[in-house]
Design a protein around this nucleic acid. Structure first.
Length: 407
DNA sequence: TTACATGATTTGGC
DNA sequence: GCCAAATCATGTAA
């Protein structure tokens, strides 16, 4: 295996099929349509070349060279080479360097939801891709230089030979053509190896991204707090999702996934989540109680005769959702326990939950009947919840009875 | 090793 | 495009 291949493979973390090495030069297996070009084959080719050099006749070398160049320019591009070139261009290995990496990196970033939480992985990916790119260009340059040097060397030999015996331009063309083909095949192998390395790096990078990682405790706590304090309507708006994503250092789609999973799993087994619900309810109850007390006091101050809507009544307040949205938009952090006072709906949820917990069970259903039946309709949907779309449009609150709940 | 928890993906409905 | 539901795949604790 040659140094270049080894380097690329090390970067990609794999062992590609071994390639023969001679004199530090990569000796790849032939691309399709080329005959054997392994180590022995190459030796044979060089033998042929030397043999041809010895039999070259006295002709105009300059003219021959011109013919060679012309012939090369007219040669149709190898389709496989074109594919490789396109791939390398697309991956950002060849062509102008793109800012910070490649199309693949950009695609990977897009796949991640564009968040910054994977920036470390991105920079790692980009660093490795840059290394591959550097190796590729270094090797390519080396090959081109070697090709030119060797061609010049051969041409010089031919010049010398032409003094003693006739050399036909056709033979010169043929010989130089052999040299170029040989170097082209080496270049092709370099491109193949580079493509492989990039593909492996990319797949590894994407695989790593696909790997499931549990969210941090703090993130789970924040999400749970929001969920249980919005149990009547656990459909965070886009803004709330973004806020949660920011707080939890995850992507918005991860927040969506989390809520999707949470809703379905909660609904499937409310009893199992009861303890967790109690925990978060208790956690936020104190804050909520303080906030409600403050609100009550405020109401008494401003309007002592305001009828008490009561906790059970406020649960169905048509505008409770509006209040939540408005308050949330004011501070943007209303879902946090410390600031849950801003979220009247969540306060009500929490208090209802605690009240239900302490108030005992009305039937034999145990904890399961506590307050989820108020939230889940017969079809399993969140009865009091507005439709997800209405969540983002705070013109209606959860209390405004919808018949089009999701299920 | 196993069972369970959990994040991600897929599928189908709307 | 968002959701519910089912499912997959991996992390984790016993």
């Amino acid at each position: 295996m040659d140094d270049q291949s080894r380097m690329l493979q090390t970067l990609a973390g794999v062992n590609l099929a071994g390639h023969s090495v001679q004199g530090g030069m990569a000796l790849p297996p032939p691309p399709h349509g080329h005959e054997g070009a392994d180590g022995d084959g190459r030796k044979q080719d060089i033998g042929d070349i030397l043999h041809q050099i010895m039999t070259i006749t006295d002709q105009s070398l300059d003219e021959a060279q011109a013919n060679i160049r012309g012939a090369q320019e007219e040669d149709p591009p190898d389709p496989q080479l074109m594919r490789l070139d396109n791939m390398l261009l697309a991956e950002g290995v060849s062509g102008p360097e793109k800012g910070g990496g490649s199309a693949a990196a950009a695609a990977a970033a897009a796949a991640s939801g564009g968040s910054s939480d994977n920036s470390i992985e991105h920079s790692d990916y980009r660093a490795k891709l840059t290394q591959i790119r550097q190796i590729y260009h270094t090797e390519l340059e080396k090959y081109e230089q070697a090709c030119n040097e060797f061609t010049t060397h051969v041409m010089n030999l031919l010049r010398e030979q032409s003094r003693t015996r006739p050399i036909s331009p056709k033979e010169i063309e043929r010989m130089v053509g052999i040299i170029h083909r040989k170097f082209s095949s080496i270049q092709m192998q370099l491109k193949q190896s580079t493509c492989e390395a990039v593909m492996i790096l990319r797949s590894r990078f994407l695989d790593a991204r696909r790997k499931r990682r549990n969210f941090s405790k703090q993130a789970t706590e924040i999400l749970n707090e929001y969920f249980y304090s919005h149990l009547s309507n656990p459909y965070p708006s886009e803004e709330a999702k973004e806020e949660l994503a920011k707080k939890c250092s995850i992507t918005v789609s991860q927040v969506s996934n989390w809520f999707g999973n949470k809703r379905i799993r909660y609904k499937k087994n409310i009893g199992k989540f009861q303890e967790e619900a109690n925990l978060y309810a208790a956690k936020t109850a104190v804050t909520a109680a303080h906030a409600v007390a403050a609100a009550v006091q405020n109401n008494q101050t401003n309007s002592p005769t305001t009828p008490n809507s009561g906790s059970s009544g406020s649960f169905n307040l048509p505008n409770s959702g509006d209040m939540f949205m408005n308050m949330q938009s004011l501070n943007g952090d209303s879902y946090q326990g410390s600031q849950v006072g801003a979220n009247v709906q969540s306060q009500v949820d929490t208090l209802r939950h605690v009240i239900n917990q302490t108030g005992g069970y009305s039937d034999g259903l145990g904890g399961n009947s506590l307050y989820s039946p108020h939230n889940l309709n017969a079809n399993g949907g969140w009865q009091d919840a507005t439709t997800p779309s209405s969540v983002t449009s705070p013109t209606e609150g959860p209390g405004s009875v919808h018949s089009d709940t999701s299920n």
